[in-house]
């Protein structure tokens, strides 16, 4: 069956495997180099092209429900399962170096003065979500209720996701667009986004924005948080942090 090749072709053969050199060209090498060059060059243009094709790709991704990343969000947790928010038993405790420690139920949080903002969310791993609509409570309003002592310099945030903690200085927490968010894009925070409350500080990478927040402790020295313990910067300013030197 396979023996019906021409005798000339057969005698050409010298290699341990069949290599049909006659009439063949190095198209394979060309394809390799071309694909490699094209792919590598996308390190210069991928974002621009993605902008053009995203209407189509997001239409496709919507067919898969929330299987694919929607709106650019990726969900990272450090433990095996995301905390579950029970509205009836949830509390946000604020204590430490304060004159009036207290804990808030979810309904009490909802009743506090509300601020709204649109800001960009930057993840330290490189992705960005633009124009996120947040609604929540400014830390100034929260702190007024508990009256920090003069020795307090920082806020330590404790997540329901153990052992996630992080912190901001009092000054950082009171920047104009920093908040304890309760809503994202017009909806109460979903479980993947840290329901019922998360810290939002657009000037810094997302790991500073503790999700599933359950406790704020006022402290005199900024402690080492979960990611800081793994070598990430305490001050995670977007575009400046984690630099060596």
């Amino acid at each position: 069956m396979g023996g019906e090749q021409t005798a000339a072709e057969q005698r050409e053969y010298r290699e341990p495997v069949s290599v049909q050199r006659q009439g063949s060209r190095l198209y394979g090498r060309l394809a390799f180099l071309g694909l490699l060059a094209g792919g590598a060059s996308s390190l210069g243009w991928a974002t621009r092209v993605s902008g053009y094709v995203s209407p189509f790709t997001s239409a496709i991704s919507q067919m898969f429900g929330d299987l694919l990343p929607v709106g650019g969000w990726r969900i990272y947790t450090i433990s095996g399962s995301m905390p579950i928010f029970y509205p009836d038993s949830y509390t946000l405790q604020i204590d430490g170096l304060v004159r009036r420690p207290r804990s808030f139920s979810y309904d009490e949080l909802l009743a506090l003065p509300r601020a709204h903002q649109v800001s960009t969310f930057h993840c330290v791993t490189g992705w960005t979500v633009k124009n996120v609509r947040w609604s929540g409570i400014r830390f100034r309003d929260l702190l007024d209720l508990v009256e920090p002592l003069p020795s307090a310099t920082a806020l330590r945030f404790v997540s329901l996701e153990v052992p996630y903690t992080d912190s901001l200085t009092l000054d950082q927490a009171q920047l104009h667009d920093v908040m304890l968010a309760l809503e994202m894009d017009g909806q109460p925070l979903s479980r993947p986004h840290g329901s019922p409350a998360r810290v939002v500080i657009p000037e810094m990478y997302g790991y500073k924005g503790v999700k599933w927040l359950t406790r704020i402790e006022l402290v005199s020295h900024q402690p080492t948080g979960y990611w800081e313990g793994l070598g990430y910067d305490q001050n995670a300013w977007v575009g400046h942090s984690n630099g060596y030197g």
């Binding site: 792919g39 590598a40 996308s42 390190l43 210069g44 243009w45 991928a46 974002t47 993605s50 330290v124 791993t125 490189g126 992705w127 960005t128 990478y205 070598g231 977007v238 575009g239 400046h240 942090s241 984690n242 630099g243 060596y244």
Partner: peptide, 24 residues
């Protein structure tokens, strides 16, 4: 490998970040 290196190193030194590498 190339884009993965950018992702890994960009997380260590964010001045090195390239959003194109993530897309690639």
């Amino acid at each position: 490998s190339i884009s993965g290196f950018f992702l890994w190193y960009g997380e260590r030194d964010t001045t090195f970040q390239n959003p194109n590498a993530l897309l690639l």
